[in-house]
Every structure is written in structure tokens, then in C-alpha cells.
Write a protein that binds this DNA or RNA. Structure first.
Lengths: 258, 258
DNA sequence: CGTCTGAATTGATAAGGATCAAGCAATCTC
DNA sequence: GAGATTGCTTGATCCTTATCAATTCAGACG
């Protein structure tokens, strides 16, 4: 890892509050790797030797069963992944694949666990990150079990809009078939869901989507802050834990205004 | 909390390896409470002041949206719940309700966070527990997105059998409508799924279920250790983290036999 | 012991989603 | 620039699941 990479690794929430000694021992043996698009980083069932930190690009987490496959998450910078497997020294439950050219920091699992057992602040930061990941999955399961396909898409678009600064035009960050798998439907059904939302002001032009009748779309989508996290993604809020804290604080502020 | 409760609280995995000082400060202000069946312990959206530890009984974790409701998990002893919200000091994303008479230890969230920031072993134990909970949810979302209702029921029965010692007769631990909500279907559909499995040797008599043609049922269910965790539930394996470690180690042992 | 209530089952029907196929458009490769 | 490939859209059909309603059964209560 080059000296120029150090500051942006240091800024990661799991490292932001730890002492230099812990930071240096954990990252001293880490290395930064670049992967082209469509690279399989690891397969479900594989042992995991590294914690992966996505610094640039997009990574898709997938699971399969029999001949079926689904997308469990799309990761954007900066995100850790496979953190739970590393903490427990367990096999991966998901596969990971780059969706585009990626920069990934790989940190030894042994180093992570060793540092956690000695540095309470670091272990606490890891626990916070795991809490954020867990809560993110709770939201995902609620979304999947409680809503139909059109509702999931509508809420996805509203969340994407909130994360992208709130304008009328949003840009789908990856292919539609990946979005279909993420939302738990076939690509044909995603097309039909987009067509259905046409009646609510949604206009699609390739990967660009215009949300023309926001009020109508929100009435259909019925966003719920206990499912949909509108935390903006930017340099200030880059970890799952931070996004979850934002959501609660935002809710409490809304409640104070009522 | 009475002195007689201390040993079984001390035996909890999140406390098993911590020093007396941390244990005493965290549990010193905790208290053990008993609740009758159908008591709402907390509602989604509520702030969370306590970590809950289920010592006896069963608790259902639920989520709602619009007029729909689903069951996200059924907790059995010994389990923590709402741990992620406590670590982040965030609002609950799920409601919790007792399914039967319960004994629950309530530990101050402030005490938990304070102890974590000072005791690395405790923070590491909490991180391990969160990792296990997270992985449990990964299995749940894979089960939900990749399998149909009959397949989810078939695998539920096989997992219940493995956790109950492996005989032909298993006992459903709660009402069927709660099981239906957990598996992501209506009670009517659960009835129909049980009837479908009748052709695979499944005989239902109230809450007792006999699995008469194991080979047939397994062929339909196609259990997958990356989705279905057969870790036995007993006094030796009582935490989510331990169940996940069991699963990996069991898989690795199976792999060595191939 | 009789009545009431709630859970479960069963039937009929509707809605949502998956599958299969064909066609179109954009991009890539030679 | 032409041909090939891939992603997406659209149509037709089938399957799975939900909804609504009626009935049955087991347990609780007076």
C-alpha cells in the first residue's frame, strides 16, 4: 500500500478513532489491489482470510441455491464486506463480484482479530460497523417480505433520489438486471414495474430516470424510515453504522418537529 | 437480580470471557423481569435503553408496513435482542412480543457501551455476537429470495429436526400462524404447504409433525449449509456467534471427509 | 357440560410474479 | 461498416401466492 493511500484508509470509520499503534499493525500488512470488472473476489462457502474494504468501484454480493441466484447487496465506496465472517473466522455466506473496475483494500483477518482483542476502541468500532450492516439487512428483509415488486422499485427510486441530492433526475448506478436481482424480481418484471410507475411520473431513458410526479410516487411508495434509509452517501457518511445513526437522529428530529 | 441468577447470566457467551470487573459493572444495575405471554416488550421506532437477554420463553420479532406485518425472527433461550440498536444508540427497527411467559434480563445500554469502550474482550464478544446475528439474517434473506414457500417449510422442518436431536418426530414450538409469518406466507398457504409435503412423508397432528420419508423430503428441500444452519441448540451452543462457528467447522469437517 | 372463541383447514377466485419466446437497440469486435 | 452479442422490452402463458369466505376442531370459560 502506497503512502498516498494511507490518509483515506485512516479516514475509514473503523479506523477513525483508533490509536496509531493499532492502525499501523492492522494496515501494515494490508495491501491495495485493483480488479477489473466482473472479477469474482470470493465464492460463498470459501474460507475468508481477509477483510475487504471497497475504496473505489462497485461490488455485488450474491447468493445462490440450486440453479437460482440473487443479489444481496450492491456495495459502494467506502464499504467493508465479509466483516462478520472475519470476526468469527467463518466461511463466507455470500459471493462477491466486481461490477466495474475496483480498488479494494485487503486486510489480514488474523490482524483484525488480534487488534480487536487488544484495542477496545477498535473492537467497538468494528461492533458499530457490524451493527450497521445488521440493521441494513433488517431493512432489506422487511422490504422483501412486506412489499410487492412495484413498491420495492418505487421506494428504491426515492431512496436513490435522496442519496443523490434530491433532484428530479436520478441515474441507475449499474445494469437493470442487477437491480432486478437486488429487488428480488426477474428482469422482465423490473421492466413491467418501471412501466407501471410510468403512470406515477417515472420516465426512463436508459440508465437515467426522471421522477416527474414526486407526490404521486410517494403516495404509492409509502416510504417508511424504519425500512428506507435516506442517509446521504458522501464523504461524511460512508459506513453502515453512520448511516444507521443518521437515520435515527433524522427520525428524532422529525418527531421533534411534529 | 437475585444471586441465584448470576451463574446463568455469567455463562452467556458475551460474558463468558470477560473479567469480573466488567461483568459486575454491566450486570450490577441490570434486572431480571418476567412477562406474561403476548406482552409487547418494545415497538419498532422506539428508542432503546436496554439490551434484552431472553433467559426463558420465546420472543417474536416483528416488522410492519402499511397494514402488513411479518415475523423476522423467533428467539429462544438464550438470546440477546436489539443488540445492534444498543451498540449504535439507535431506535429499534423491529417490535418484540413475548409468545409465552418469559424471563428477560434487561441491561442498561449505557452500561454496555461504556464497558465496550474500556474492555476489548467484552467489545470483541459483542462483535462476535453481532456477527452471528448478521449471518443469521443473511441466511434468512437467501431463504426468502431463493426458495418457494413449500421449500422454505421443508427446510424449516429439517432444521428443526436437526436442532431437536434428529428423531422422526418434531414439535412446532409455537402457533402455526406465527410460523407462517416467519416463513413469509399466509396461514392458509402454510396449511397448503403442509398438505403438499404430505406426499413426502410429512404427517401433521396439531403441533406434532412426523417426518416419515426423510430421503424424499431432503430431495425436495435440497438443504444447503450456507442457508440452513443445523447447529444443535442446547446449553453448549446458545449464541448466534457459536451457531455460526459450528456451521463453518461442521462444513469444514464434511469437506475433509469428501 | 354447553357455549364461545380462536386457530386451522378447505374451497373458490384474483393478483402477482416467473417462464418462455420474439424482437429491438446499443455496443463491441473484426 | 457489417455482423455478432448482450441487455432490455414486450407478449403470451403458467405457476405461486394472496384474498375472501365458509367450515371444522380444539381449548377456554362460565
Amino acid at each position: 500500500m502506497r503512502a498516498t493511500d494511507l490518509p483515506r484508509v485512516r479516514a475509514l470509520p473503523i479506523f477513525a478513532n483508533v490509536g496509531d499503534e493499532t492502525f499501523n499493525r492492522v494496515t501494515g500488512t494490508a495491501y491495495l489491489q485493483r480488479f477489473p470488472a466482473n472479477t469474482t473476489l470470493l465464492l460463498e462457502g470459501d474460507p475468508v482470510d481477509f477483510l475487504y474494504v471497497l475504496l473505489d468501484g462497485q461490488v455485488e454480493l450474491q447468493g445462490t441455491w440450486k440453479d437460482k441466484e440473487t443479489t444481496l447487496a450492491i456495495l459502494r465506496p467506502v464499504s467493508t464486506f465479509i466483516l462478520a465472517a472475519v470476526v468469527l473466522d467463518a466461511d463466507a455466506l455470500m459471493s462477491a463480484r466486481t461490477l466495474e473496475r475496483c480498488e479494494i483494500l485487503m486486510i489480514s483477518g488474523d490482524a483484525i482479530r488480534s487488534a480487536m482483542s487488544e484495542d477496545a476502541r477498535f473492537a467497538f468500532a468494528v461492533a458499530r460497523e457490524l451493527s450497521g450492516c445488521y440493521r441494513g439487512l433488517v431493512r432489506t428483509i422487511k422490504n422483501q417480505k412486506l412489499r410487492g415488486g412495484v413498491e420495492r422499485l418505487a421506494n428504491y427510486l426515492l431512496t436513490l433520489r435522496a442519496k443523490s441530492g434530491g433532484g428530479d433526475l436520478v441515474h441507475l448506478p449499474h445494469e437493470k438486471r442487477v437491480l432486478a436481482a437486488l429487488l428480488g424480481m426477474t428482469p422482465e418484471n423490473l421492466s413491467r414495474a418501471f412501466a407501471t410507475l410510468g403512470g406515477y411520473g417515472v420516465e426512463v431513458n436508459g440508465a437515467d430516470v426522471r421522477l416527474g410526479k414526486l407526490r404521486d410516487l410517494e403516495r404509492l411508495a409509502r416510504p417508511d424510515p424504519l425500512i428506507d434509509n435516506y442517509a446521504p452517501r458522501g464523504t461524511n457518511l460512508s459506513a453502515e453504522a453512520d448511516a444507521e445513526v443518521w437515520s435515527t437522529e433524522h427520525q428524532r428530529a422529525e418527531g421533534a418537529r411534529s
